[in-house]
Design a protein around this nucleic acid. Structure first.
Length: 387
DNA sequence: TCTGGGGTCCTAGGACCC
DNA sequence: TCTGGGGTCCTAGGACCC
């Protein structure tokens, strides 16, 4: 989906179309009061009533920027303070995940009704298997891509960009070629002309660390990566990652489109308004800690899961991260139980530095309905192995 | 450039078991 | 007495993604 969060916001506030808008940070505006003041509809709120990025003080990053804002160099994951320097006049809206999830559900349902083999990749992205969709091969997939775009736009008013290719790796890169509202079809034979000129960083799975290391070896483009012998990549990047890099550069990827998956963990974390000290801010920290446990427990219960690995995550004022976890011998979704074990985890971390972030995680998840059987197997494990 | 929140997967060492 | 080989699970950290 193109600039998904921002595009959803523009549906509510069409008066902001064409303006630089960023999503992130800040509290929710008092829409009700503004609506009452300006005549009853969100779309009646005048542009001048929206807060500007230049007036923002606080922590946080941009989650999404509209295309007009991107022209100023503002992009996702950028710190708010830097963004404010680049584009102080940008209008700033707070994130509203509930609303984005609603639209996410909507566009995915439309895709599923047309092409049922779909893999979720977060709120705003999916992989779709065209193979068995009637007409899915017409014009190399372009016809179906157009139908998907049209259906999604008619139902939601949102645009998306689609890459069609023989596998997920190439399709993902292709989807970036023609944004926004674009389609690009990449065939096997286009590897050299369309993929090899791209920077290695464009490969989904090559992040900042791997890219920096590749550059140290003089490897900038995917073509240069493809030119390195497989053995050389394995020697320098490890057996697994090296081989994967080689395959990726040659456009090889045989991962199927996974239509279902079970969650592995659920977590809640929060960055404080100011750095907190374990002793000095004990009460506040304790309150937040308990609240996070209550939230995770709520998530587990709502989604019908229980877990047996409970862990915490700390980010210190120097941005170093520490994690601790503990696996218990039963499955839980209970806030007090989670709080107790998370508390024991916390005791194992040295707490000299101030804390910036605290998180609580429950892993080793199982659907509620399978817990009983799993427990029975755990108890009966030894005697069963005798046979 | 003072840098969110929710995830997944991988690695590597150690405990433990057969 | 100084010594095996295979396997699983747990823990901590880190890379990466949306």
């Amino acid at each position: 989906m193109d600039a998904f969060y921002a595009s959803v916001e523009l549906l509510r506030y069409p008066q902001l179309k064409g303006l630089p808008v960023i999503i992130g940070g800040g509290r929710r505006r008092e829409d009700d009061a503004l609506v009452a003041k300006y005549g009853g509809r969100l779309s009646d709120i005048p542009v001048e009533a929206f807060p500007l990025l230049r007036d923002y003080v606080g922590r946080g990053v941009i989650t999404t920027a509209t295309y007009p804002a991107r022209q100023f160099g503002v992009g996702s994951a950028m710190g708010m303070m830097k963004a404010a320097r680049l584009c102080p006049q940008a209008i700033m809206l707070p994130v509203d995940f509930a609303e984005y999830r609603r639209f996410s559900r909507q566009f995915k349902d439309i895709i599923l009704s047309i092409a049922p083999r779909m893999q979720d990749r977060g709120v705003d992205e999916v992989y779709i298997d065209f193979s068995d969709v009637p007409g899915g091969q017409r014009e190399g997939g372009r016809t179906l891509a157009r139908l998907l775009q049209k259906s999604i736009f008619e139902a939601t008013g949102l645009t998306c960009s689609i890459g069609v290719a023989p596998n997920k790796l190439i399709a993902k890169m292709a989807s970036e070629f023609n944004k926004p509202n674009g389609i690009s079809v990449v065939h096997e034979g286009d590897l050299e002309s369309l993929i090899w000129p791209l920077a290695c960083r464009k490969i989904n799975g090559v992040g900042p660390k791997a890219d920096a290391k590749l550059q140290l070896h003089g490897i900038e483009t995917i073509g240069q990566l493809a030119a390195r012998p497989r053995d050389w990549l394995i020697a320098n990047f490890g057996r697994s990652y090296g081989a994967w890099l080689h395959d990726a550069a040659w456009g090889r990827d045989d991962r199927p489109v996974e239509t279902e998956s079970e969650p592995v963990s659920m977590s809640r974390e929060t960055t404080f308004d100011r750095d907190l000290h374990a002793v000095h801010d004990r009460a506040e920290l304790g309150r937040i800690f308990t609240e996070l446990c209550v939230q995770v427990a709520g998530d587990l219960r709502r989604k019908g899961y229980a877990g047996r690995t409970i862990g915490i995550k700390l980010r210190f004022d120097d941005f170093k991260i520490a994690t601790r976890d503990q696996t218990i011998d039963f499955y839980t979704q209970d806030a007090a139980e989670i709080r107790r074990h998370a508390g024991l985890c916390l005791k194992r971390v040295p707490l000299q530095r101030r804390l910036r972030l605290l998180g609580v995680r429950v892993g080793n998840l199982l659907p509620e309905g399978e817990v009983e059987q799993a427990m029975a197997e755990m108890r009966g494990g030894e005697s069963a192995s005798l046979f």
